[in-house]
């Protein structure tokens, strides 16, 4: 499994890198030499040129104000990856430290939006805050008003980066339908599920084969067919005395998941996780 996955990943890496290189050169040629890093990748072509420039400059401004890098990505095709994986691979390719990234996937039948926070922004833009941002952004995306969606995203991001997350009064839990909102994510979940692992399945098969053969060998000599009731004189047997007395109840409570400040490594619910490059991040997403 790991073997398969890593080889597949290598290919994806290669493809993604090549793609990015081609795009970058294309951009450099068409826009002249940019001193600053590109922040908006509109592969899906949802934005006009002046809109891109506008978004770039707002993102640049917020980024330098809060020591982070904000990326906006759109694509028509996530190449079989979930939005989550797509973003993780992007973050790895950019070797981000602090970063907030929004990704709009326009893939037919699997349209969705995902936001992730890396480094310090795993906390400044935690799962709860991402849910709030998504609340504001998704309606614009549904209306096809992509530019407004992204400016809303940037303004909400600016707002949250300037606020201490521990002072948030209302904490949102991760979207319970998170997995259901992305077809590719469900596939990835299954692929990562041990029951789908080919070696695990092989082991289980061999185990069952061994058990069947073992039981046959064991039972070849005849088996015990009497049980604890065989010799019981049930008419003259009874429970003489019995009671079930309630004594007390103790209650313990456990926090469900990381809806609050630190999407600590123990809680990987919703869209938070770790990229294959080892980058821990917060996250959330919806289909629209």
């Amino acid at each position: 499994m790991n073997f398969y996955r890593s080889s597949q990943k290598l290919c994806l890496y290669g493809a993604a890198m090549l793609f990015l290189m081609v795009c970058t050169t294309f951009f450099l040629f068409s826009h002249g030499v940019y001193a600053e890093e590109q922040l908006v990748y509109d592969y899906a072509g949802l934005l006009k040129e002046d809109e891109i420039e506008n978004l770039e400059s707002i993102a640049q401004e917020i980024g330098s104000q809060y020591n982070t890098t904000i990326y906006i990505i759109t694509d028509n095709n996530s190449k079989g990856l979930s939005r989550k994986r797509y973003l993780e691979d992007f973050a790895d390719s950019k070797e981000v430290t602090n970063s907030v990234i929004i990704f709009v996937n326009m893939e037919p039948g699997n349209r969705g939006v995902e936001i992730q926070g890396y480094g310090q922004d795993e906390f400044r833009m935690n799962n709860s805050r991402i849910e709030f941002v998504l609340d504001e952004v998704v309606p614009h995306l549904s209306n096809g008003d992509y530019y407004t969606a992204f400016t809303t995203f940037l303004e909400k991001t600016r707002y949250y980066l300037g606020k201490d997350p521990s002072e948030d009064k209302v904490i949102r839990t991760p979207n319970p339908n998170y997995a259901g909102s992305d077809k590719n994510y469900q596939k990835e979940l299954r692929r990562n599920n041990i029951f789908y692992n080919i070696w695990f399945q092989l082991l289980v098969s061999l185990g069952i084969g061994g058990i069947v053969a073992g039981v046959l060998v064991h039972n070849s000599g005849g088996k015990v067919t009497v049980n604890d009731r065989t010799y019981l004189d049930s008419q003259n047997s009874r429970v003489v005395d019995h009671w079930d007395r309630y004594i007390r109840t103790t209650t313990t409570k456990v926090r469900n998941s990381s809806s609050s400040s630190g999407s600590s490594s123990s809680s990987r619910s919703g869209g938070s996780g770790v990229s294959s490059g080892g980058r821990s991040h917060s996250g959330g997403g919806r289909s629209f």
Partner: peptide
């Protein structure tokens, strides 16, 4: 956001 676990004890005879 909390999961509660109630454990009730019984004296059984």
């Amino acid at each position: 956001e909390y999961t509660y676990t109630d454990t009730s004890y019984y004296d059984v005879y």
